[in-house]
Amino acid sequence: MAAGGDHGSPDSYRSPLASRYASPEMCFVFSDRYKFRTWRQLWLWLAEAEQTLGLPITDEQIQEMKSNLENIDFKMAAEEEKRLRHDVMAHVHTFGHCCPKAAGIIHLGATSCYVGDNTDLIILRNALDLLLPKLARVISRLADFAKERASLPTLGFTHFQPAQLTTVGKRCCLWIQDLCMDLQNLKRVRDDLRFRGVKGTTGTQASFLQLFEGDDHKVEQLDKMVTEKAGFKRAFIITGQTYTRKVDIEVLSVLASLGASVHKICTDIRLLANLKEMEEPFEKQQIGSSAMPYKRNPMRSERCCSLARHLMTLVMDPLQTASVQWFERTLDDSANRRICLAEAFLTADTILNTLQNISEGLVVYPKVIERRIRQELPFMATENIIMAMVKAGGSRQDCHEKIRVLSQQAASVVKQEGGDNDLIERIQVDAYFSPIHSQLDHLLDPSSFTGRASQQVQRFLEEEVYPLLKPYESVMKVKAELCL
């Protein structure tokens, strides 16, 4: 049975990233139509530049190519590739079939990587351009969430054990800070992308030097003109047959890092959902379990974690691919890159769409948070109580021993009897502590235990987050809708 299948058929496997999760716009960027249309555009740009620099290419040939950029006979191309065992030459023939007058000058002087690699770089750039505003929107939604809850005390956790208090907004800023680093890295790697350009079979530009009869300047002009037509500021000066596969490492490393950030955020949300302090959106008709109707599973956060793990592992592909590119190139890269580049971007696209949807509907339960604080705060307040007693004339050592005994009794009630923490009640009825009984409410005010959390939130948002989001103001209103 021949390899390949009808990918629109229910009898043929289709990647869930495309069929179930990723956005239509990201799927289109990695589609065959987008790819092969870009090949034709690159052939047109090459012909236009070659004509401008004096090669015998007519206006009629150029116009014929322009008129057929979208006229792609995919069936013919597939048949040609089956016959020739070469995808680029299959599309040269297919393009030439609908451009008979231009057929002889299509791909003039070029090698397969002229269309293959340059198209990949265009796709990487455009895919990054799709991700950047999506990530900015996630940051914006979380920034709104953090600002609104900047002063809401909550129990902090280290080692997932109760620690000092923080605020809900401050905790959210930990998430935002990681995503801001990801946004900066995505922008950097996007701006650092260079075009492969017009380089020939081993990167020496020998074929173009021959076409222009040894004119170095025209060869350099050709490279520059096509690079500018493709919208790049610069091209690699040095290439082998391909652009260095280190570029793929750079791009997928940034995406993998984004995956790590999203995994951490969504894990926190899942843990908070278990504590009943916070939940992701839950639709009115949504079913959490087929057997347990009360369940409210954090399905979206779980999906993000599941896909983020996949995204983090994909960076190993370009690392290994770059390491086995012998001399000017081997074909070890080809099949692998067809999979890992598309999957990385479709996965990143999915987790950003999902995280935006989550961040637009996060639900906080202040009463649950308050109750958990009441359970733990008495123990945390013991040092403040000791200091207040010393100020009232008591002995630190005597007070410490009193607190120690009462704390152990209260802990026994919590752990052995399943009761509430009654340390404060014990202190309130103990005559030894009568000098500070009137101060206990103040000493137990949760806001006095959150330090500068709310001020940190305000400063972080104003100095770091809002300036970073400013270039994306025009796209901030787009909502994230999930079908599944």
Rank of each mutant, 00 (worst) to 15 (best):
I249T: 08
L271G: 06
Y13R: 10
A392T: 11
R20E: 00
N274R: 03
M387A: 15
D441T: 09
R303M: 04
G169N: 04
E148G: 11
I386W: 03
T154G: 05
N185E: 06
K75Y: 12
K75S: 12
Q320V: 07
P467Y: 07
V315T: 10
F327C: 12
E70V: 11
F236L: 11
R270S: 04
P467E: 10
S9G: 05
S438G: 09
V247I: 12
L311A: 06
V363F: 08
L362P: 07
D223K: 01
L272Y: 08
P318E: 02
V29N: 11
A410S: 10
R459T: 13
G394E: 11
P281I: 08
K66D: 09
N336V: 14
T202A: 11
V315Q: 09
K233C: 11
K233S: 11
V457I: 13
S412M: 10
L362S: 06
A260P: 05
M76K: 14
R83F: 15
I424P: 11
T382V: 09
S12W: 10
I122F: 12
Y432W: 09
F157Y: 10
G116P: 00
T267V: 10
K367A: 15
V364Y: 03
K199M: 02
W326D: 00
Q458S: 14
E277A: 02
L121M: 10
L341F: 15
Q205N: 14
M389K: 07
C304H: 04
F28T: 10
M76G: 13
L186G: 10
Y21R: 00
F160N: 08
L252Y: 05
A230P: 00
R371F: 02
G419M: 11
L186A: 12
I237N: 09
G288F: 04
C305P: 02
V92L: 07
H7V: 12
R303F: 00
Q397G: 09
R40D: 00
A335Q: 05
E277G: 02
K224F: 12
E417Q: 14
Y472A: 11
A150S: 12
N118V: 00
V465S: 03
N126V: 11
V465G: 03
S407Y: 02
I424Q: 15
F449G: 03
R296P: 03
R190N: 10
D178I: 01
Q397R: 06
K233W: 08
A143P: 00
D144Q: 15
L211M: 14
M76H: 13
Y13G: 10
V478L: 15
D117V: 01
D349F: 05
V88W: 00
I403Y: 06
T313Y: 08
L222P: 01
P471W: 15
D120P: 03
V429G: 15
K276D: 09
S289T: 02
D182F: 01
V315C: 12
L142P: 01
S334P: 01
E425A: 13
K187S: 13
H97K: 14
H86G: 02
R426A: 10
Q320P: 01
E280T: 04
A103V: 14
I424C: 15
T347K: 04
P281K: 05
E328L: 02
C98G: 10
Y114C: 06
Q51F: 07
F160G: 07
A322W: 14
K229P: 03
R196T: 02
T202Y: 00
C305N: 08
E360R: 03
H93K: 15
E383F: 03
I339C: 13
D398T: 12
Q408L: 10
A2D: 10
L275P: 02
I265E: 05
L275H: 10
G116L: 07
T58D: 11
L272V: 12
F208I: 11
E148T: 10
I106G: 01
I436L: 07
F449V: 05
K82Y: 09
S67M: 14
C98Q: 15
V115Q: 05
E425W: 14
Q221G: 08
L469Q: 04
K477V: 15
L209Q: 14
N336P: 02
R404L: 10
L53T: 11
E463C: 08
K402H: 07
D117C: 11
T450I: 13
G200I: 00
H93R: 14
L130A: 09
I237K: 10
Q408C: 13
Q356D: 07
S67G: 11
C340M: 10
R452Q: 09
E463D: 12
R37C: 09
L193I: 14
F232W: 05
V457A: 08
A348T: 14
M65K: 05
K264D: 05
P153I: 05
V414Y: 04
D268G: 10
L258G: 03
F460N: 00
H400A: 05
L469F: 08
G169H: 02
K415Y: 06
A431P: 14
G361W: 07
V219K: 04
L482N: 07
R33H: 07
Y466L: 13
D248V: 02
L346D: 00
E464M: 06
L469D: 02
S257N: 09
T52V: 13
D333A: 03
K101F: 08
A22K: 09
L142C: 11
E50H: 08
L222M: 08
T111Q: 01
A291F: 04
A256W: 01
L362T: 10
D59W: 09
P435M: 06
D144N: 14
K264I: 03
L307K: 10
